[in-house]
Structure formats: structure tokens, C-alpha cells
Simulated scan of single mutants.
Amino acid sequence: MKIAALSDIHGNLAALDAVLDDARGQAVDLIVNLGDMLSGALYPSQTADRLMALGLPTIKGNHERQLLAGDPDRMGLSDRFAHHQLRADQLAWLRDLPVTSRPVDGVLLVHGTPSSDLDYFLETVTASGCRAATRAEVESRAGDVEAALILCGHTHLQRSMKLDDGRLIVNPGSVGLPAYEDEHPFPHRMQAGSPHARYAIVTEHASGWEVEFKAVEYDWNAAANVAASNGRPEWERALRTGYC
């Protein structure tokens, strides 16, 4: 079994199409989508149409939950932008998505951790910033979940860890947004360091699952120009450089 894991598309249709083309060339058996698909500064409605037509195994992320929550005037800029552009059928599609999924035996899809769409799985934020999580921290977050492979997103950083019991946790990075800043629980930056669209391929062998991280070129300058025209300079810089 070979799975392409996609996450955090954030309405970046050009990046999504580039990743899909690359994944199809890898002879994957399945493509899965780990959420945070539409919110941002680019093409939420067009991205929703592409994903709805594909019918990939897909879960909600925190941004899907947030943009479905109610009053757009109380939403952040990215969720509000998406909410104003999405049609009723697209919002209905989002509402029907699960928050976790097991698309095949032994594989679990989550957005953040098995218990939260906001917690980081493979990173830890402290008052000093963000660092890679320790093995003990990751084991605590994984808990007693039974899955040989746990695919997570949310942090936009490509990272993996194999636990002592053999479970592999993989974050494929972000398809559509290579850097962002957040204030919770402390101010921190997540930066991939280049503007590539990222995803992961996980392959099952007799010895277990192995991961290969992918970084794909696309016209990120065109995407950055769209973000700038939509009044989001922080998105423009992230898309053009991979840094905040």
C-alpha cells in the first residue's frame, strides 16, 4: 500500500494541482486529505470544487470547524474570506466531513492530534518558541490509539517519528501555505524555508511503514500576487519565500 498524504491546502489551487500531478506519477494507491483546505487568501471555492469532485478520504481541520461556526464578523481573516466565497453546497460538504477517519486498516487520519484539531502532535510551543516534540511528548499525545500509521497536519512542517511500539506518526507539511505566525499558546512562527508545495508518500513494507517527504514546484509567485491583491501581505511573503 502506498498513500499520498496531503494537508493544509488553504485554498491554494495551483499548489494542489501540482501536488496531485506529482502524486499520480508516484503510482500511489490512495490520496488522503487531512484538513484546513479552504481558508486563506486565494481560491477557496475553486479548491472546494476540485476536492469535492475527487472524493478523497478527507477530514475536517480546525479551519473547517471555525468557518462553519457561525458569525463571519467574528471569524479571522482567512476563515471570513473563505466563508464569503463558499456556496451552500460547499459548506454542506464541509459539515458532513468527519474529524478523524480510518480509510484503510491500521491507518488513522487526524488534523492535530487524536483528541484535538488545535494541538500540535510533533512540535511543542513554549515561551521560547516552537521546537520538535520529545518522544515522551509524542507518546503522550498518541495515547493508546491503535494504528500502525497516524497521519496528522496542522503545523505545516514535514516531520515524522516512529514510536517504540512501532507506530509511525507523519506530518506531510502544507500543500498551500509554507509559513505562518500564531499567538497561542505563545507567539511562534512555523516556517518551511522555501515556497514549495509539500506532501508525503507513505509506503507499507513487510517491516512497517516508511515515509518519503516531497516538495513540489509550482507558480508560487502568481499565488503570492493573488494574496497581495486580496490585501494579505503576510500571505504574499509566506507564499513567495517560505518565511514569515
Rank of each mutant, 00 (worst) to 15 (best):
P57Y: 03
P57K: 02
P57T: 07
P57L: 03
P57R: 00
T58I: 02
T58Y: 01
T58K: 01
I59K: 00
I59C: 02
I59W: 00
I59F: 04
I59N: 00
I59S: 04
I59H: 01
K60I: 00
K60M: 03
K60S: 00
G61L: 01
G61W: 00
G61F: 00
G61N: 04
G61S: 09
G61A: 06
N62F: 00
N62I: 01
N62P: 06
N62R: 04
N62S: 11
N62K: 04
H63F: 07
H63A: 07
H63E: 09
E64S: 06
E64R: 00
E64Y: 02
E64G: 02
E64I: 00
R65H: 15
R65V: 10
R65L: 14
R65T: 09
R65E: 15
Q66L: 12
Q66S: 15
Q66M: 13
L67E: 03
L67W: 07
L67Y: 09
L67K: 02
L67V: 06
L68R: 04
L68I: 07
A69G: 11
A69Q: 13
A69H: 05
G70I: 07
G70A: 10
P72L: 07
P72W: 08
P72T: 08
D73Q: 14
D73P: 10
D73T: 14
D73F: 14
D73A: 15
D73E: 15
R74C: 13
R74A: 14
R74M: 12
M75R: 03
M75E: 04
M75A: 03
M75S: 06
L77I: 15
L77S: 15
L77E: 12
L77Y: 10
L77C: 13
S78T: 14
S78Q: 14
S78V: 11
S78F: 12
S78R: 12
S78K: 12
D79L: 06
D79S: 13
D79Q: 13
R80V: 01
R80K: 10
R80F: 08
R80G: 06
R80I: 07
R80D: 07
F81G: 07
F81P: 08
F81D: 02
F81Q: 05
F81I: 11
A82N: 09
A82G: 09
H83P: 06
H83Y: 12
H83Q: 10
H83G: 04
H84Y: 09
H84M: 10
H84D: 13
H84E: 13
H84P: 01
Q85C: 11
L86Q: 04
L86M: 11
L86Y: 04
